[in-house]
Design a protein around this nucleic acid. Structure first.
Lengths: 346, 346
DNA sequence: CTGTTAGCGCATTCAC
DNA sequence: GTGAATGCGCTAACAG
């Protein structure tokens, strides 16, 4: 590996001058600049990130933290993050905080490697963790991809308004003629989706529809978060209901909805004729199931893109101001809901 | 940030001694070691990876290269990689080579950051790229997750034997009574799955079954690799066949199979009664489709785990020996194939 | 067993 | 405009 010194030697200048042309210092005579550039090209020289980092404190590397990577949702988001990061000369470390080591240990490892910033996805943070994160965010910028945190705290964040979207979902169901709408809540270990449930309740109010506690199912916490299975359990619960059943169900996330639809169909309940179901997130699986899932979409990739842009901007400016970007969800109508104006089967 | 010097001062020793206890040098008196450790704890000191790296050349960081990240297959593999990497004190950069910059540029960026090793997934490499990769592998270890490369070149690799597995798939189909087996080949831009097709042809020979070229469909290359769509096109092709049709189809990957089944069903052809279909990869979607897909599974997560272990081992030993680990595929029998011993519909 | 010394490759003063 | 000198935080000889 060639060093700055080798370049200097070949170009017949000093190390300082080489350093200057690398860093775009304007006060270098064009011809010496050319000479240096030739030497760099000739040696295929590229500065060591270590030596550079030791002086500047920057690594041109950011971290993308997710609670669970098998969830395709984060895969999509990552694409947005990575695409713009790479374009800006940043590499991204992906950190699955649900794996071998704890979130805090993970962040410490990251800090040791002097990453320049963090894009933080979570299912929920404890107060102690939140304090820790805010402390870190004094050192390096953090973008929170979380509605609950984003609303409550003075932090930079980007998220989709689950409260509003779910509320709109209720309105939509009402238009298709549903009157007894139930909800499948996420496991209570996962706070990030709770504002959706809030939106559900307030949507009911807005529509003048009753809130029926027996039609709200909360998934039990499990060691391995298998949402499909949880959804199936939820569907089994609703199928087992004696007497009245809901005529529609909203869910915290798509997999819950898909699992639920599966269970419902297996017990002879027709979707959407007997019960409409709406998911949340618009994972690609939803368009392949049968019937295809009506859902609320987040602009996942775009969110990743914006988050990366915000982060890199803050890194460059060294700015301490917090910025927020809130997206709106979009209802994707497919086959698990009835069409507006039509009646279900009698 | 505290430095090694601060620790030395507090512990009343020299920097070297601090360095020694950090790096586990055995020849340090237990009590001085304790003193140093106390000082480290007190200052919450942790060594700078820059300064360390500039001397050792190591970053405790590896790269995980994938051609396309939305493919869940890599998500699963990543979990295996990351889990063991983190356990061993390594962080992993995820690089989607299908995105903003070219594979070669990407690798150069990685090299600049002095990563310690690479786990390399590809859809296919050109000879020039291969030369480049082999050159790099003189510097840092690379694990190739690719059967075609692995078989041909003297490199470290881990993969599932697609040749053998597909061959076994043919035997399986024969046992269920299939006699005219066709195949859906991947786009020709994707070389990585080609050995599966070879296994298909040789499996036919072993079974004494005819190779019927008109029953082999090759997906056309597309700009955006949408396998579902390609599968649907394939299915449409087979449905359109006048006269004789295959009584079974094997496919290069699951999504092709799923798309094909969809198209077949839509044209009134029954799966598996009229045509059996077998996928490859066992993506989670396969168990949710209707009928659920019979497929050949790779131990994806385990492969990631082994790859990371091999890589880290090579990094530590600085060994130049290449190691290979080949897994066997496993046929997951679901609903798109007929049961052994039963006849299809008459 | 431990301290001293000398760089690693670079950015950044400070002189000229 | 440019070069020389200094130090970032650490490891690795080399002495004791």
């Amino acid at each position: 590996m060639a060093t700055i010194f080798d370049v200097a030697k070949i170009a017949h200048v000093s190390k300082s001058t080489v350093s200057r042309v690398i860093n775009g210092d304007p006060r270098v005579k064009p011809e010496t600049k050319r000479a240096v550039e030739d030497a760099i090209a000739q040696l295929q020289y590229s500065p060591s990130y270590f030596a550079k980092g030791i002086r500047t404190g920057q690594t041109k590397t950011i971290a993308f933290l997710v609670p669970e990577y098998t969830n395709m949702f984060y895969g999509e988001m990552f694409n947005g993050v990575e695409d713009t990061a790479v374009r800006e000369g940043y590499m991204v470390m992906v950190c699955n905080t649900g794996n071998a080591i704890s979130e805090k240990e993970y962040i410490n490892e990251l800090l040791k490697r002097n990453i320049d910033g963090i894009i933080y996805n979570t299912y929920g943070v404890k107060p102690a963790m939140m304090r820790y994160l805010k402390q870190i965010s004094e050192e390096i910028p953090i973008i929170f991809m979380d509605e609950v945190i984003g609303k409550k705290e003075n932090v930079s964040c980007v998220y989709t308004d689950g409260y509003l979207s779910t509320m709109q979902g209720v309105h939509f169901l009402k238009k298709t003629g549903c009157k007894k709408i139930g909800y499948i809540r996420n496991m209570d270990s996962i706070q990030a989706t709770e504002s959706r449930f809030e939106g559900f309740k307030d949507g009911l109010k807005e529509c003048g529809l009753p809130y029926l506690p027996q039609f709200v199912y909360q998934c039990p916490a499990e060691q391995n978060t298998d949402y499909m299975k949880a959804g199936i359990q939820a569907g089994t619960y609703f199928a087992s209901l004696k007497g009245e059943r809901p005529d529609a169900l909203m869910t915290a996330i798509d997999l819950l909805a898909i699992g639920c639809v599966t269970a419902l169909c297996n017990t002879g309940i027709h979707v959407p004729e007997d019960i409409s179901v709406i998911g949340y997130d618009n994972i690609s699986l939803g368009e392949l199931t049968c019937p295809a899932l009506t859902t609320i979409a987040q602009p996942t990739r775009e969110m990743g893109k914006i988050a990366a842009e915000m982060l890199i901007d803050q890194i460059r400016k060294g700015a301490k101001e917090k910025t927020k970007k809130i997206f709106e969800g979009e209802i994707i109508v497919r086959q698990t809901t009835r069409q507006i104006g039509r009646r279900g089967r009698m």
